[in-house]
Amino acid sequence: MSFFVHTLQRDLLLAFRNRNDIVNPLAFFVIVIALFPLAVSPDASVLSTIAPGIIWVAALLATLLSMDGLFKNDFDDGTLEQVLVSPQSLVLLALGKVFSHWLMSGFLLALLSPLLAVMLFLPTQAILALVSSLLLGTPTLSLIGAIGAGLTVGLRKGGVLISLLVLPLYIPVLIFGAGAVQAGVMGMPIAGYLALLGAIMVFSLMFAPFAVAAALKLSIRN
């Protein structure tokens, strides 16, 4: 377990040293959402109807954008193969890296989302639904994305392939995430949606790290 903590510390330190990598998905998130009022309509009623979908799609794409680099750098400079020739567990490495990735993407996106919700005239009663659905849904996006990143890490151009591999698996999270916010807008209970998002997260938390470890072994040992 201490290896998990060390991995997390190291990746957070690396993220702090390369701050661009953190800013990139956040900037993407903000810019995409800021363009909608200009392109669709600045009308409050129109924007508030489409806001849940826009914010969730933008969050999903922002996560996907940063997924490609998750293992790529470690693969290129040889630190990943050093983990493979060490007695440490790849599963804990995967878990540590995914958690750090989520802190730098999904978590920050969730913190940022109320601001963008106000910009899109999302009713105040839905903001809680938005933040909590993002907090419960984005870890799943990071976990599933990491499987794709692990499978494509050995390929020269894996970026597009990751999207093709993991986007279909993102759909349930998108549906329940945006659904929770819609329900929040209409003042309906959101507990059911959140429970489903939480269940999906727990399920992927249980299986994804093992799948990531297997994918990394496969990519390196071929």
């Binding site: 330190l13 040293r17 400079d77 040889g78 630190t79 193969e81 050093q82 020739v85 007695p87």
Partner: peptide, 16 residues
């Protein structure tokens, strides 16, 4: 546990 491997790649992080 008994093995140390030094490969082609230096295995070090440039920003650390």
């Amino acid at each position: 546990r008994q093995l140390l491997y030094v490969g082609h790649h230096a295995g070090i992080k440039a920003s650390l």
